[in-house]
Each structure stands twice: as C-alpha cells, then as structure tokens.
C-alpha cells in the first residue's frame, strides 16, 4: 500500500518537473519566435531590434573570421580575474578588520561611504591612474565587489557563535589558530554566497570598463556596434554575455555544493 502511494508520489513529482521544463522551453521559443516574427512583419524596427536570424548570421560571421573568440576570451579573462581578485581582497580586508577590532571601529564610516558610492564612477580615474588597458578593466571588475565582500564577510566573521572560539581558547589557541580552525570555515557558506553576488558585479565592472577604454572584448563590441549602428552585433554580444555569466554562476553553485556539503 505504502509502496504504491510512494510510486504515485514520485510520478507526481516527475510530472511536475516535466510541466515546469515544458513551460520554460515554451517561454524561450515564444521569446525568440516572437522576436523573429515581429521583426519579419516589420512591427518592430529591424535596424534597431535586429532578429534572431540576423544575430545568428553575425555570430557565424564573427566566429569564422576568428574575431569573436578573441573578444570573448579577453572579456572572460578580465571578468574571472576581477571576480577572484575582488573576492580574495575583500575577504582579506575582512580578515584584517576581524583581527583588529580597533581598526574596524576606526574604518567603519569609511566603509559605509565606499559602499554607498557607485564604483563605476571611479572608471575614468582608474583609467588615468592605471593606463588604458586590461589592468584598469580588471581593477574595475574587482573594485566593484571588494567593499561589499568586505562588509558581508566581516559581518559573517563576527557572527560566528563565540562558543566555538571558546572551545579552542580552552585549549590555549592563538588568535590565528582560532581564525583558521573556526572563524574561516564557519564563514564559508557566507563567502560562497558573496561569490554568487560577485559574479554578477564583476561582469558589470568589466563591461563598463570596456565601454570606457577597451579595443577588445564584448563591452567594446557593444559600444562599437552602437557607434556604427550595427545592432546585430550589440544583441549578439548581449546574448553571449548572458550565456557566459550564467555558466560562471553555475560553476560557483557547483563549488558551493562541494564545499558546503559537510558544513551544515
């Protein structure tokens, strides 16, 4: 009896899953199909909104002449380095703040100001200071996530149940040992969740950086396409960005599953 009920329940779950997948695919098809249709019927301006077939043609063209791999490669490299640098530096600063409560008290208002300030506004200064090149774009991708990482991770450090630290202190643990054995591993879930946020932020930083200065990369393609009024190119770049940003996010989620497995 229980067995049949269980089987029914499993089938129900499967059915629900299929239903969700079906509608997800329908939305995708309706979006691209509708876009194509509206564009062909000229209900929307083809010059501005392009159409999936034009985007596809542009894509094939750019792949076959080899330029697309270069642009995607550059942007991906900048984003990944910016993302990792932002997260590591943010965590490092959080560690320093945890280490020195006095320093964290002193720096508190400055963190608030830096966090409130839109980091992309610093773009021109970065470019002047670091030179127009990869370095300032990577710096932009990192800068945009450093402060928020610092604040979130520092809060996580402080939120660790003090009794865990007490256990180690009764064994005479040093501050460094307490950090390594308790504070950091207990904060891993928070650090991972900031990674997820930082993936998105780094893309923003890098694309804006490329808008401002680059001669390569997807951000550059968007600006270039805009300037020569080639919106096939702009929309293709957007779709590629969406694709790779999703992949990066998925990778972080996978990482989360591996690291958090025994943390709960």
């Amino acid at each position: 009896m229980d067995n049949t009920l269980f089987k029914q329940y499993q089938q129900l779950l499967k059915k629900e899953k299929r239903f969700v997948r079906l509608y997800q695919i329908i939305i995708l098809l309706v979006f691209f199909g509708g876009w194509e249709l509206l564009s062909r019927l000229e209900w929307i301006d083809r010059l501005i909104f392009s159409s999936p077939t034009y985007v596809w043609q542009t894509f094939i063209e750019k792949v076959s002449d080899g330029t697309l791999t270069l642009h995607v490669g550059v942007t991906l490299m900048e984003t990944i380095i910016g993302f990792i640098a932002g997260t590591l530096l943010g965590t490092l600063i959080a560690t320093v703040l945890w280490w020195s409560p006095m320093l964290s008290k002193i720096l508190d208002p400055y963190l608030v100001i830096l966090n409130a300030m839109p980091k992309v506004a610093l773009g021109p200064i970065l470019i002047v200071a670091l030179g127009p090149g990869y370095f300032s774009i990577i710096a932009m991708g990192a800068l945009i996530s450093i402060i928020i990482t610092t604040i979130v991770v520092y809060t996580a450090f402080k939120g660790v149940d003090p009794n865990y630290s007490k256990v180690l202190q009764t064994f005479g643990a040093t501050r460094w040992q307490t950090f390594k054995e308790v504070i950091l591993p207990a904060s891993f879930p928070t650090i991972i969740s900031t990674l997820k946020v930082n993936v998105g932020l780094s893309w923003v930083g890098v694309i804006v950086g490329e808008f401002l200065v680059a001669s390569k990369g997807l951000g550059y393609l968007i600006i270039y396409g805009f300037q020569v009024f080639n919106f096939n190119l702009v929309l293709m770049s957007l779709l590629i960005i969406a694709f790779f940003a999703t992949i990066m996010y998925q990778v972080v989620e996978l990482l989360e599953k591996v690291i958090i497995k025994n943390n709960g």
Binding site: N163, K166, V167, L168, F171, G172, E181, A186, N263, G264
Partner: peptide, 22 residues
C-alpha cells in the same frame, strides 16, 4: 559546554583531536 559545539565541518576524529592539534 551546554552544547557539544563540535565543528560541523570536521569529522568526529578531527573533532576529538582538535585540542592536540592546537
């Protein structure tokens, strides 16, 4: 302490020997 405060990310063996490690 009132609760065990075993470190959830360590195995039981590593939890038992954490004092020795420290």
């Amino acid at each position: 302490l009132q609760q065990d405060y075993l470190f959830p990310w360590k195995t039981i063996e590593d939890n038992v020997t954490i004092g020795l490690k420290i």
